[in-house]
């Protein structure tokens, strides 16, 4: 019995240290905030445009993730091609890639001198870096894998006989996808969307590298926090708290789904 108690104490101590590692910085943020001045901080000219830009770009990112990611997840879930596992591995690369590296890669692809960007500039006259479009590119690059993996996971758990059944009833693959597969993986789509949106909201490295930092145009909330920290720490804390709050709300929504 004693060894059981020892083992339990031995596990409890590191477990609580682990909790402290995660909790202390977040609590510190709450303690250091100037709560009385919060409305003034959030009304500052650097704060509102950053939050608005973050909201706009992350929503666009989410729409792109849904439009491209849902079919991609379906392809990965259903394809029996021998290259499919490789494709799946490829999709996960941006998950582990440092975001700054993602930003450099995006510059090499869509920059003015980039592989695709040069042609885009010559033919259409479009230049992507330093625009809100570049922010969406950066956010999509880092968020899409989260969406695809979450949706693919729930699609793979789906009984394939439904597909066959729908087909015998005369439904086309497109109709099957739209009216059978998508509604049945709705929970997966919801959690994938939440994860992808949260990742897009937190995006920093790829954005500052590829899109630059201009207030109202490419300066998202995380970039504004970084820049404000050196000139106006209270504004940085206020913005950080808004982002912490948003993260907690998203997590709350997700947990409601998972812990039912």
């Amino acid at each position: 019995m004693r060894s059981v108690r020892w083992a339990r104490t031995g596990l409890f101590i590191p477990a609580w240290i682990g909790i402290a590692v995660l909790l202390v910085p977040m609590v510190a943020l709450l303690l250091k905030a100037d709560w009385a001045g919060m409305p003034d901080q959030l009304a500052k000219p650097s704060v509102v445009p950053a939050l608005r830009l973050s909201l706009m770009t992350t929503s666009s990112t989410l729409v792109i993730c849904a439009l491209l990611g849902t079919p991609l997840a379906w392809l990965l879930a259903r394809s029996t091609h021998r290259l499919t596992p490789w494709l799946r591995a490829l999709v996960t690369v941006p998950l582990v890639l440092p975001p700054v590296v993602g930003g450099v890669a995006l510059l090499m692809a869509y920059g003015r001198e980039g592989v695709v960007g040069r042609t885009l500039l010559e033919v259409a006259g479009w230049s992507i870096p330093f625009t809100p479009v570049a922010v969406v590119f950066a956010e999509t690059f880092v968020a899409l894998p989260f969406y695809v993996l979450a949706v693919e996971g729930s699609m793979r758990g789906l009984d394939r006989r439904y597909d066959g059944l729908a087909a015998t009833l005369g439904a086309s693959p497109w109709r099957t996808f739209r009216t059978v597969v998508v509604p049945m993986v709705a929970p997966g789509i919801a959690s994938g969307s939440a994860l992808a949106w949260a990742r897009a909201l937190g995006e920093f490295g790829a954005t500052i590298t590829f899109a630059g930092n201009f207030p109202g145009r490419t300066q998202t909330a995380p970039l504004a926090v970084y820049v404000a920290l050196e000139s106006d720490p209270q504004a940085a804390i206020a913005l950080s708290l808004v982002m912490l709050l948003v993260s907690i709300v998203i997590l709350g929504l997700l947990r409601g789904r998972w812990l039912r």
Partner: peptide
């Protein structure tokens, strides 16, 4: 006509070096 405010002088220079 500024398109970006970079976080240090080398990041600023890099945008020119890259041709962006």
């Amino acid at each position: 006509h500024v398109v970006s405010y970079e976080i240090n002088v080398k990041a600023t220079l890099a945008k020119v070096q890259l041709g962006e």
